[in-house]
């Protein structure tokens, strides 16, 4: 059963590379890959509205380091039981694996904002598609000039990165949480997040892909944010998001990677 999965993944990567190279040939801020393939692949037969009322995406137009591009998605309204963003999917059109991450939110998230660091392999659009609780899809997009982020050399201190793999840290603004309000929190996960694309043509060895696939954040057992991630997430995944505690309790992160490793960390939250 494992072999077909791997080979279909390789096929996807090859298809992605072909699409990316086609896109490169086209001039300017091309959206062919999205319009002809990706939209239908990820959101078959669904209407997607490009509006300004739901979310905003911030990314540098010219990336300084293609393997470490800061990306911020900001929602335009707070999460309430009546009106909230259920999911945000991030697609990077011309990456070898366009699906980059998917974030499930709940009313307990407080605010459906997310900031992370990503790899960009080509000049490409990055798009965030939000699904609101009424089932509608809303999109925001940005164009980023970068190249080679997925095949870029693995962080040079790979040994240090491997030694602390699975370590996690929560960071808050200040010592105390404000009850009933969205509180910003940062989750740092130490993981080399190897893309599998750093192919070694000299010794013919391939650095096998090894990356975080799932991050579940919960507060007192209730989901705050559930994330599916792929190789576009930079080494040492870093997630900034919100949670809205209604009492003192424990914020917990559970992480899985593609090799089946699991890590968890928790942090006491006091008002």
């Amino acid at each position: 059963m494992k072999i077909p999965v791997t080979s279909s993944r390789i096929l996807m990567i090859i298809a992605g590379l072909l699409l990316a190279s086609q896109a490169l040939r086209a001039e300017g801020e091309d959206e062919t890959a999205w319009n002809t393939t990706l939209k239908q692949q990820f959101f078959p037969n669904r209407a997607i509205e490009e509006d300004q009322q739901t979310l905003e995406i911030t990314a540098p137009y010219r990336a300084e380091d293609p393997a470490l591009v800061p990306l911020q998605i900001t929602s335009k309204f707070p999460q309430t039981k009546e009106n909230f963003i259920k999911n945000i999917t991030v697609i990077i059109d011309n990456n070898p694996v366009p699906f980059s991450a998917s974030f499930d939110f709940t009313p307990e998230s407080g605010k459906a904002d997310i900031a992370t660091r990503m790899r960009f392999n080509a000049y490409t659009h990055v798009r965030a598609i939000a699904e609101t609780n009424d089932g509608k899809l809303h999109m925001a997009k940005a164009f980023v000039k970068a190249s080679g982020g997925c095949s870029a050399p693995i962080g040079t201190d790979l040994e240090a990165a491997k030694a602390r793999m699975g370590k996690m840290k929560f960071r808050f603004d200040g010592d105390k949480a404000t009850l009933g309000q969205p509180n910003p929190v940062q989750l740092l996960i130490s993981h080399p997040n190897i893309t599998g694309m750093q192919m070694d043509q000299i010794s013919r060895m391939v650095q096998p892909a090894h990356y975080v696939t799932e991050v579940k954040v919960s507060f007192e057992g209730k989901a705050v944010m559930t994330t599916k991630t792929d190789i576009a997430i930079s080494a040492d995944p870093n997630l900034r998001f919100y949670f809205a505690p209604d009492k003192a309790g424990e914020l917990k992160a559970e992480v899985k990677d593609n090799l089946g490793n699991t890590y968890s960390a928790s942090q006491a939250v006091t008002p």
Binding site: G148, P153, Q198, M199, D200, Q201, I202, S203, M205, Q207
Partner: peptide
């Protein structure tokens, strides 16, 4: 250096070309 060359070669070759 050998490992660094090996890991970077594909990326560097593409950059040299482009």
């Amino acid at each position: 250096l050998t490992q660094a060359m090996a890991l970077r070669a594909p990326f560097y070759r593409e950059k040299a070309h482009s």
